[in-house]
Design a protein around this nucleic acid. Structure first.
Length: 405
DNA sequence: TCTGGGGTCCTAGGACCC
DNA sequence: TCTGGGGTCCTAGGACCC
């Protein structure tokens, strides 16, 4: 039996702010991003604010309406990252199998541990987190036999919880008392599709034949089928094996809707330059530029196109602006988003690896071609002589680990 | 005055090459 | 001249997470 912990820092940004500033403690606070007015939403609501119906993601104007005494605090991402590092350093002590799920959530797998030992570790962890990050910083820990149920378990008791779900029987008992979208992997879209099929809870979902789920949801049908039974085969992905970023993007909601091309172009310049700066900081270049536009009625449209690998803001601007002009119907727009994906390292050593691989691929192809034509043995020897100098170097693609570092 | 901003993953079809 | 099938790249679109 696997033992997986999910550790969730409660109202993270808010508790960090309350820890840093005693005057905020015990009060409803909301942590905001950039601007405090207009069309922005809360990054985090404190426990006190949550009690008054203000949730993370509530628009600021609405938070003020629900809770006029709410104190808005400007968020400080550097501070949170520093705290997260301390948090992860504590978790690392218990197992190398640590997956960083987000800035305030992690999975930890304890090989060869019992649930009793996991509970002890959980209690100790909580103490150490408070000691290191401050008395106000609490976490909810879920312990179970897979990631799905560990995450659900940590959600049950907030703040400062510790819940264990030991087996599938307990899992199903709990699932039957939760909403479909309480589970990680079911969001608004899938929930409403299930509702239309007459499935409103996990009990009913469990009765659905696998075939009818796969016919509606394709491969995700099996995931749903398993979910309703508390089954989840996903492994904990250790942080040191996590691949590099796959895409870098920015979106921005304008402070007011506009159809003024000059204003919009200014935003594009800003977004694309920000993206390019981040690419350069990570020594990456990207190939696919996507642009997404949201109209005043919240409907959206987007497209993508490919460019030559680049980390130049102007290249990204040109590509995204071109897409925008194709997509834009000249009505006022609300949001602009630009993302670059298909990234690779600008690092020359990696580029030579890449070229080596391309060359090797070509050679392998020609070997195969010749062999298919003339038979396996005779001609292989001749071609292999040519490959020799190249294959003396270990192929980095044979070892995942090497390639990722 | 409804609904931010950072991401990831998956599917499917068409183009193109061998 | 009429074909199969595998693989890769590109694009669109959908769904999910925090």
């Amino acid at each position: 039996m696997r033992v997986v912990l999910h550790i969730d820092l409660n109202s993270y940004f808010a508790t960090i702010e309350q820890q840093a500033n005693p005057r905020l403690r015990g009060k409803p606070i909301g942590v905001t991003g950039g601007d405090r007015m207009g069309r922005t939403v809360l990054g985090t609501a404190s426990v006190e604010a949550k009690k008054l119906g203000v949730k993370t993601g509530t628009p600021i104007w609405k938070a003020k309406a629900l809770c006029p005494e709410i104190i808005l605090v400007q968020g400080d991402s550097d501070k949170y990252l520093e705290c997260t590092k301390k948090f992860l350093n504590i978790l690392k002590d218990y197992s190398p199998s640590l997956e960083v799920f987000s800035i305030d959530e992690s999975f930890l797998e304890l090989p060869n541990a019992s649930f009793e030992q996991a509970i002890e570790i959980g209690i100790e962890m909580k103490k150490r987190i408070k000691l290191k990050l401050g008395e106000w910083v609490t976490c909810s820990i879920g312990i179970s036999y897979n990631k799905l149920m560990a995450k659900l378990a940590s959600d049950i008791q907030k703040p400062d919880g510790l819940i264990v779900i030991e087996d599938t029987e307990a899992a199903m008992w709990i699932l039957d008392r939760r909403e479909l979208d309480d589970v990680c992997g079911i969001g608004y879209g899938i929930k409403s599709r299930l509702y239309k099929m007459g499935v409103r809870d996990f009990k009913t979902l469990r009765k659905m034949p696998l075939e009818s789920l796969t016919s509606s949801f394709k491969s995700y049908g099996l995931v749903l089928y398993n979910m309703s039974r508390g089954i989840d085969y996903n492994l904990v992905n250790p942080f040191y094996e996590k691949p590099e970023v796959k895409s870098i993007g920015h979106r921005h909601t304008l402070s007011y809707n506009t159809a003024d091309p000059d204003k919009i172009r200014q935003v594009f310049y800003k977004l694309t330059e920000l993206i390019a700066r981040r690419l350069r900081a990570k020594k990456l270049i990207g190939k696919t530029v996507s642009c997404w536009v949201r109209s005043a009625d919240m409907s959206g449209e987007g497209k993508q196109s490919t460019i030559d690998f680049s980390d130049d803001g102007l290249d990204i601007f040109n590509a995204s602006w071109k897409i925008f002009l194709e997509v834009w119907d000249r009505t006022p727009i609300r949001l602009i988003g630009v993302t670059i994906s298909n990234l690779k390292s600008k690092n020359p050593s990696n580029v030579t690896f890449l070229e080596d691989k391309l060359k090797q691929d070509k050679i392998i192809k020609s070997i195969d071609k010749i062999n298919n034509k003339y038979g396996e043995f005779m001609l292989k020897r001749g071609v292999l002589l040519k490959v020799q100098p190249m294959s003396r170097k270990p192929n980095p693609y044979l070892s995942d680990r090497r390639f990722k570092i």
